[in-house]
């Protein structure tokens, strides 16, 4: 019962509002041979983010998970994507224009504020361990009695 309550709390507790003042961010991401550089971009929740995609070998794209945004860029013609990062969490971005054999694995990551899903996952994992060990200890104790 307690465990269920704790699990529910961890899984569904509302996220505290972001306390950092949103800022304007301009981030240039270079795309080359199945790699974004920088591959991990971190912004605060609420920031107004402009991603500038610059392809440096062949035509690449950038599709942002969760935000469902897409942009493509030819070498020499960088393209921009501007949006408000109002959804916290970690979001993969993937190449959206076939750019060679490893194209499906060309992946980067945008961190927006705190990754609450990850924190919840860690909390639930820890709780799960406690639950498993306690339950069995309880069962063992009963058996010993």
């Amino acid at each position: 019962m307690t465990v269920a309550l704790a699990a529910t709390t961890i899984a569904f507790a509302p996220v505290p509002a972001a306390t950092v003042t949103p800022v304007e961010r301009h981030i240039r991401i270079e795309a080359k041979s199945f790699e974004y550089s920088p591959a991990v971009v971190t912004v605060n929740s609420g920031d107004r983010v402009t991603l500038e995609l610059a392809a440096t070998d062949v035509v690449h794209g950038l599709y942002l998970d969760g935000y469902d945004l897409n942009v493509t860029a030819d070498p020499g013609q960088p393209a921009r994507l501007t949006f408000i990062a109002d959804r916290p969490g970690a979001f993969r971005f993937r190449c959206s224009v076939t750019c060679g054999p490893l194209h499906p694995f060309m992946i980067g990551k945008l961190n927006v504020g705190s990754n609450w899903l990850m924190l919840r996952a860690v909390g639930l994992a820890a709780l799960g361990i406690v639950f498993v060990t306690q339950r069995c200890r309880g069962a063992g104790a009963q058996r010993n009695l």
Binding site: A54, A55, T56, D74, P75, G76, Q77, P78
Partner: peptide, 22 residues
């Protein structure tokens, strides 16, 4: 220029396009 030249000569014309290094 954007379609054909900028990749080497740069978007700003400074000769530092994305292909310059390779």
């Amino acid at each position: 220029y954007a379609a054909n030249c900028a990749a080497c000569h740069g978007e700003t014309g400074a000769g530092n396009g994305v292909m310059a290094a390779s």
